[in-house]
Design a protein around this nucleic acid. Structure first.
Length: 271
DNA sequence: CCGGACGCCTGTCGGC
DNA sequence: TGCCGACAGGCGTCCG
């Protein structure tokens, strides 16, 4: 489910309810996420104040007094802030219970998400240490992407979804950005001009920023912290629109598998 | 180093 | 109606 805009939306939604509050305890009804959540986490976080929340790539970082909770929503994860008395629904696996009577509740039907407790500098954690730049940061430029693309024969769609190249671009927004930039998703990354890679950087930036402004994309199960969906699904130009007219030229949108992921593109606009 | 394939898990949908 | 396979927003790991 969540790509960068959905994680950012979750962050903005939950941060005001969490920052400055104190953790009472961690309630884990199901510890078998992508990696098992050790019971030592419960002891580690109990009683600590939440200093601040941040996002790195698609990870949420909850900085406590002596360490950081590293949370990933995987494919189907979502977060709500609810009174701790709210009965949990199926797949509501973990509550971070606060002393004010509320809790941060993680729902994740497919359990591809994860929760780690990290002491010491969180950027050094193996899951974060080798990530590429943030797509909405200054380091992500046309020059950077051009340099990264040199000699790469992988399809550009796989290339921009590679978290070593740039983080946060998942299947929806990769498709959308390539359409905006007029680049065919199967084209080898190393065979795209600097000019067009510059356009691709701007397309990625633009589509992610627009999606954040709309509260992300809700297809199946993504909800914001208040239970409302995000509205960017209405703005999707190619994703999930097989055989429908291209918003630019009217040609039918084509769907095919590229690098093991469903890809949507306009055969006329994207070369 | 690079690119491709796989598997983790549950829910949903389309076709027969 | 019921069953069954395909597929779904991610990503670490393994293999050649």
């Amino acid at each position: 489910m969540p790509e960068l805009p959905e994680v950012e939306t979750s962050l903005r939604g939950i941060a005001p309810h969490l920052e400055g509050r104190r953790v009472l305890r961690l309630d884990a009804r199901e510890r078998r996420l992508r990696w098992p959540v050790p019971e030592t986490v419960d002891l580690a976080v109990a009683g600590q104040r939440i200093i601040q929340l941040r996002r790195r790539a698609k990870y949420l970082l909850l900085q406590l007094e002596t360490g950081t909770l590293l949370l990933h929503l995987g494919m189907s994860g979502s977060l709500r802030v609810v009174p701790v008395t709210t009965p949990p629904l199926p797949h509501d696996h973990i509550d971070l219970v606060l002393t004010d009577g509320y809790c941060l509740r993680l729902r994740d039907p497919r359990r591809f998400g994860s929760l780690h407790w990290v002491q010491g500098p969180v950027e050094a954690h193996p899951l974060l240490a080798h990530l590429g730049p943030e797509p909405l940061g200054d380091a992500f430029s046309g020059a950077y992407l051009h340099q990264q693309a040199r000699g790469r024969r992988a399809p550009v769609k796989a290339f921009i979804m590679d978290s070593h190249v740039v983080v946060g671009v998942g299947n929806i927004y990769a498709n959308e950005a390539l359409h905006l930039a007029g680049i065919h998703p199967a084209r080898a990354a190393g065979r795209i001009s600097a000019l067009r890679l510059d356009a691709l950087v701007r397309a990625i930036t633009r589509v992610l920023a627009a999606a954040i402004a709309e509260g992300g994309t809700s297809l199946r199960d993504f909800v914001r912290e208040d239970g409302n969906p995000g509205y960017f699904a209405q703005s999707l130009r190619v994703y999930g629109r097989t055989d429908q007219p291209c918003p630019s030229c009217g040609a039918p949108i084509r769907q095919r598998r590229i690098a093991q992921r469903s890809s949507f593109y306009c055969p006329r606009c994207q070369r």
